[in-house]
Amino acid sequence: MRRYEAIEEITKELKGDELVISANGKISRELFSIRDSACNFYMLGSMGLASSIGFGLSLSLPYKRVVVLDGDGNLLMNLGSLATIGHFAPSNLLHFLLDNEMHASTGGQRTVSSKVRLEEIARAVGYKTVKKVSSVQELRTVVSEILGSDSEREGPSFVLAKIESGEREVPRVSHEPQFIKKRFLTNLSNFTVTQLTTPNRLTNDRAGKFVVLKSVNFHPARIYLQRLHLVTKLD
């Protein structure tokens, strides 16, 4: 399975309102070429931080599903992020690791992921669902299981997809960084509860349009974070 095929497979299963954070380099470029969307936040620089950005997003919007498309080079640069995510365990976070055991964007230099079992680390830090796949078919099954249902499955989920080398010529992300950000924020400020992927977390009185950017005082995330915070304190 090549990376391009893996990203195609994942995006095929998206309902369209999931928020997607893509790691810098080829992952962002391929996502951009396969399915450009206002829900995508393409990282251009800041290597290593895709999972951290996805984590901050998922904590703050517990009723939205957040998908991180990460690479092995990226994750190895910020392994501490796994521990932080595992500790807070946001159930709406789905973390894909596209693992080709190399830094493909800089010319294929090897990483150490050929021997390091990153899925075991994810399990050890507290990801609730952990899968490892190496074929398109396996990935399809796992993705539809996790993304397809209105998920009773408990997250955070970690899916390690082993990727073969082999590159497709894809253009760079042609949007300006500030456009990527503004489009992402504007899109979020317009979404409605009917689009939510986990409506069971909302009480009935929160029906109607939910304007994220303007509703600081009535933010379900606040309640959720309070709970998380208490858990942290008890620890």
């Binding site: 931080l49 999972s51 951290s52 901050g56 904590l59 950000k181 979020l188 994220v212 933010h219």
Partner: peptide, 10 residues
């Protein structure tokens, strides 16, 4: 990175 994600969430 975490703070950036939080900012993107409003």
């Amino acid at each position: 990175g975490i703070a950036t994600g939080a900012y993107l969430a409003g």
